[in-house]
């Protein structure tokens, strides 16, 4: 589904991704861990098409298409979803209006007619229940004045609405209280299917207790320096990153 080959990216002449390789198949869950500033969010931003970063080398194919050639909105419409580490506030634009526009753009891209208002509202209700998001939040402007945890829940709600093929969850667990973590993680699990895949970026094992990864990767200084099964996350939790850093420097 997603093939990353030797991906390099920079910002202001500072190289941040320095040769990433990664293969993700339908149905898989990949966890990406790594110390602060190692390039995890940068990788998700580059995959989502943030033009602030310049790709200097490498290839990415998504369902057989050249991802790097696509406009960010087309990547979304092709089924790539990013749950932002820091969701953005858009004052004055209601969640309902925002989601309806987004959903209809996706439908248009697939050659489908816009969804009727009543079908849309029903869909919203169903998905709100799934992530147990407060009804008031969807009546407000996009993320405006939302608490940190509410913003994260709102990301998962949007993911549920758009039903992506590949979801990248960038530290979706940070800022969530214990109950919210369980709700959000269960929501993500419910959305899983053999056809779609998930990249979970996190610092903690607790999220991976709910969303069990098939593969765990460690990103360090812009490269994936270690990949293994779910036991790697437990090992990292126990030992930290020093041993990997050391292994890498050697």
């Amino acid at each position: 589904m997603l093939k990353i080959r030797n991906l390099h990216a920079k910002i202001d002449d500072k190289e941040i991704l320095r040769g990433i390789n990664l293969d993700i198949k339908p149905g898989e869950v990949h966890a990406i861990m790594g110390p602060n500033g190692s390039g995890k969010s940068t990788l998700s931003a580059v995959l989502a098409g943030n033009e602030a970063f310049e790709v200097t080398e490498g290839e990415v194919t998504f369902n057989g298409k050249n991802l790097l050639d696509m406009a960010p909105e087309d990547r979304s419409r092709e089924g790539l979803f990013l749950s932002f580490q820091y969701p953005v506030e858009i004052p004055g634009v209601s969640m309902v209006n925002f989601m309806r526009t987004a959903l209809n753009e996706h439908r248009k891209y697939r050659g489908e007619a816009p969804m009727s208002a009543s079908d849309f509202l029903k869909l919203m209700r169903d998905k709100k229940n799934l992530v147990e998001i407060d009804s008031n939040l969807t009546n407000r402007a996009v993320n405006e004045g939302f608490s940190g945890g509410e913003k994260k829940k709102n990301e998962i709600f949007q993911m549920a609405m758009l039903q992506p093929k590949l979801a990248i969850l960038d530290e979706t667990d940070s800022g969530l209280d214990i109950d919210a973590l369980r709700i959000v993680a269960n929501g993500v699990t419910k959305l899983k299917s053999p056809e779609n895949a998930t990249i979970v970026i996190t610092h903690y094992q607790r999220l991976l207790d709910y969303i069990v990864p098939d593969h765990v990767h460690v990103l360090y200084k812009g490269r994936i320096v270690k990949s293994a099964g779910k036991e790697l996350a437990l090992e990292l939790e126990e030992k930290g990153y020093d041993w990997i850093k050391k292994e890498f420097e050697d």
Binding site: P72, E73, S76, P87, V88, I90, N97, F98, T101, A102
Partner: peptide, 24 residues
């Protein structure tokens, strides 16, 4: 960042600007 957020949800930049301005 607002425009990119909208792009990431499938809105073109043009539609994103229109949506934000109309809200405003």
């Amino acid at each position: 960042d607002q425009i990119f957020y909208c792009n990431q949800r499938g809105l073109s930049t043009e539609d994103a600007v229109a949506l934000i301005v109309n809200g405003y």
